[in-house]
Amino acid sequence: MSRKRRRLMVKSLTDTVTNNRRTAIKVKNKALELQTWSDLPEELLELTFSRLTLADNVRASAVCKRWHSSASAVRVVNQSPWLMRFPKIGDWYEFYDPVHRKTYSREFAELTGSILCCAKDGWLLLYQLRSHRMFFFNPFTREVIKLPAFEITYPTFPMVAFSCAPTSPGCVVFTVKYVPHLRVVISTCHPGASEWTTVNYQNRLPFVSGRWNKIVFCNGLFYCLTFTGELGVFDPVERVWNVLAAPSPKCPDNCFFAKSW
């Protein structure tokens, strides 16, 4: 920074009033003293709130309107993902916050007898074996959103995915299952629907394994990659299922990478 510019900065910091300095100071000070924590500049509020855990942030946002807007602004953006661990026995679930290196435990009796299908956008999609129901669960708010009954016959558990949070308008739940005799069964549903829509598709490609280990939702389409390197693509709006031949990963047999697909 040039000397001249520096000088200007210093001038702006410098009170050059000499004669009526005391009066000016009095007025200024009164204004300064009257300021309170609710007048703190937005950026300072945001910096402070970004150091809070989610529960503390929510409480701070209920203090006053200005705090509400600042706390809400930094709530999601700065919230790093947490890991959720399912217990082998009992209803106590562990949450690990990697940023603060803290573990939290919480009891969710409502999840008893349920298995996790998938998780996205802070929501879990679970399947309750007893009632044959799939339901969404938000571990932060404990909100439950039920889906219509959906019978799953063992041992072929379908692969399940959902497009976005169930509170968003375009949420679609998607399941895909391979049935011997080269058939693919796709069922879809959305929160608020009275039943699942199931369609069978002929499968033109011989799947060695009927398991889609990975489903990815991207730009309105569900992509399912198989062990053998085929890519199934489902358009939930048009209800169209296509199988594309994707090049197999160049990887030796049984290596960890291939297995983890």
């Binding site: 309170t36 609710s38 150091r51 203090v63 006053c64």
Partner: peptide, 23 residues
């Protein structure tokens, strides 16, 4: 400031920071 808010209730935070509830 953040540490002072941790684990506090909304009314406790208002008291600590002298903030008026405008909701």
């Amino acid at each position: 400031a953040a540490d002072l808010m941790k684990g506090m209730t909304v009314s406790q935070i208002r008291k600590i920071f002298h903030i008026k509830n405008d909701f």
